[in-house]
Design a protein around this nucleic acid. Structure first.
Lengths: 341, 341
DNA sequence: AAAATTTTCGCAAACGTTTGCGAAAACGTT
DNA sequence: AACGTTTTCGCAAACGTTTGCGAAAATTTT
């Protein structure tokens, strides 16, 4: 029961009394080969279950048809929806994907880039680790093979970047709250100036400005390492204010859920007294009650378009590295936590 | 800004006036090479950032150091924890991982196995698609390269299989309910006789038997395609019974959450009137209130051990394919949905 | 029917690495 | 100093594929 050997071009050639090169060309539809021999070859190939040794192929052509993907945390639901898109699209386009998890570790991320290069991937798709210091390594990689960033991006890296329209999404979320009659809208964001947090905050500010609602620093709260627990904490702070907000926009679903849990504890009516809106449309958002209003990020689409741009770059290499930003549209999903009939 | 070429053995050899073979042996610590030249080579290699072309290596040695992983759905939290373990462990052991999603599609699964073989993976790790008809394809693969199954397994396939102690876990879950004084314990399971569902049901039966609790078919409910919605539906059925159960054991967290939602709607006190226990310790289990008691499956550990067994088989190939089942211990996590102080 | 052209195919090199075998260099033994 | 050992290294083949170039075969043209 030892492993069977795969059929090779040589075997096919021997069976048909042809040369290896002829067989190869026949299978690749080279015009030099007559239809009759081409047919014969293909028939035998099928019969013998010939499948080309992709390693030999990649070895020779310097193309492996393998892509590298690096994400900070594979367990985030949003990440998995992106991965779904990536896997599906790359498969139909004839590529395979190697996935790694940086765990938001700058150092690890660099190592992974290195070993991916070693493995000869044709291109790399990446969401940056939270604190990425060594842009140098990444630039080095980008100078060798095509690189596309998604979700967690940086304008310091000249390459194509696929993101959602963060600012606009936040704008619509806040505007929605305003439309339901809320006028004192708090925000919970990250202190650390991540791309995402910054953009969403901008959207928040613009919505308030455009609707002539004064901005109150007291209800603009920040935390590093945003999470459910932090959401709870900050909600408690908001509840202890003399002038409580009548709505809370949390930059993250988990924080929003923390907020809801805190409000529950203090018997605050949602959404009548305080409405809540999150961001991400995580799976939790329909588990919690009231169901959470949130911004849906079409993960699969993000993954798909990111892969498309990457493969486009691989197959039509351009010499100039240029920053190109593609924005994917989001959808505000209004549920019970902010809906007043 | 065109791509830089990688350093090769040949370049090193030229720089040092040595032959390629000597350089190769020096880097691989071959005893034939003197310490002095070995040193020189290694120093230059480091200086020139030499890294072996893994494709050439794999091409020659028929070892790619790439493993294939197939899962039904990459978005399930439990799956991602397994993947975490797989990625981490394989990385430290010097392997890379290609992941594919079968979407519980029998057909797709076969195709994926095929292309993975084509890509020359050294071994395959797989959780079976829900309905897997064509065992033949899988056996074919198993005859070519090492195969290890995890989570969704089948005793029809002779290979090593890594699972949790399903039966025992269910037993302890039900016993826990009995210990809190419950005597009329319903179960929600799958009609389709999946390995997991079957085992968990066996544990349920054994717990009741060993505690001399009569078994009542009326509160043994099944559904195919178990889900949150189905959990709700079946809970409604249980509530309409003349003699309601005083506890519900759902074979799946999502179903358990459905149950809780249904109980909420009918203002049933949890756990006083009806206790609920789930299975999986999904992320939802602490979001729902009351927090769900459930069986924690150590996903990372499952992934780690599965990878270890696979690599062991790759590096020490045995000719006989034999079914070996490794059971990973689970933990019952008691939370508010079943805890009566 | 010979020449010119086109079609069809084979030879051989190349991709980067490992490895069996043989040869040169260094060493030790008489 | 001549020989036998051991140490150290290079030659060349091999892995499976693609491809430029040249040659043979088939076809068309004169």
């Amino acid at each position: 029961m030892s492993k069977k050997q795969n059929t090779t071009l040589k075997e096919l050639a021997n069976h048909l009394n042809l040369s290896i090169s002829t067989v190869s060309r026949a299978l690749n539809n080279h015009p030099d080969i007559s239809a009759s021999t081409s047919d014969k070859v293909k028939r035998l190939a099928k019969k013998l279950h010939y499948s080309p040794n992709l390693f030999a192929k990649g070895f020779r052509s310097h193309k492996t048809h393998i892509l590298g993907v690096i994400v900070p945390n594979i367990s985030h639901y949003f990440t998995t929806t992106i991965l779904k898109g990536i896997l599906d699209e790359s498969e139909t386009l004839g590529y395979r994907v190697i996935i790694s998890e940086s765990k938001n570790d700058d150092q690890k991320q660099s190592e992974m880039l290195q070993t991916m290069i070693q493995f000869g991937v044709d291109g790399i798709l990446m969401a940056l680790a939270r604190k990425t210091r060594s842009i140098d390594d990444i630039l080095e990689v980008a100078s060798r093979i095509p690189l596309v960033l998604f979700d967690k991006v940086s304008d310091k890296i000249p390459c194509t970047q696929v993101v959602i329209n963060e600012e606009e999404a936040a704008y619509y979320a806040v505007e929605h709250l305003i439309n339901t009659g809320k006028t004192r809208i708090a925000i919970i964001k990250e202190t650390e100036q991540s791309f995402n947090s910054k953009k969403r905050f901008q959207g928040y500010l613009r919505a308030l400005n455009e609707h002539k609602i004064p901005i109150d620093e007291k209800i603009i709260l920040s935390t590093e390492d945003i999470s459910l627990e932090k959401g709870k904490m900050l909600a408690n702070i908001l509840l202890s204010l003399k002038k409580r907000p009548d709505a809370i926009f949390a930059i993250t679903d988990s924080a929003a859920i923390g907020v809801i849990k805190a409000l529950h504890k203090f018997k605050v009516n949602i959404p009548e007294e305080i409405a809540v809106v999150g961001f991400s449309n995580s799976i939790h958002s329909t588990i919690i009650s009231p169901k959470l209003s949130t911004v849906d990020q079409p993960g699969e689409k993000i993954g798909r378009t990111a892969i498309k741009y990457l493969i486009e770059e691989i197959e039509n290499p351009k010499d100039d590295m240029i920053t190109k930003t593609i924005e994917i549209k989001t959808n505000l999903i209004v549920r019970d936590s902010s809906f007043i009939p």
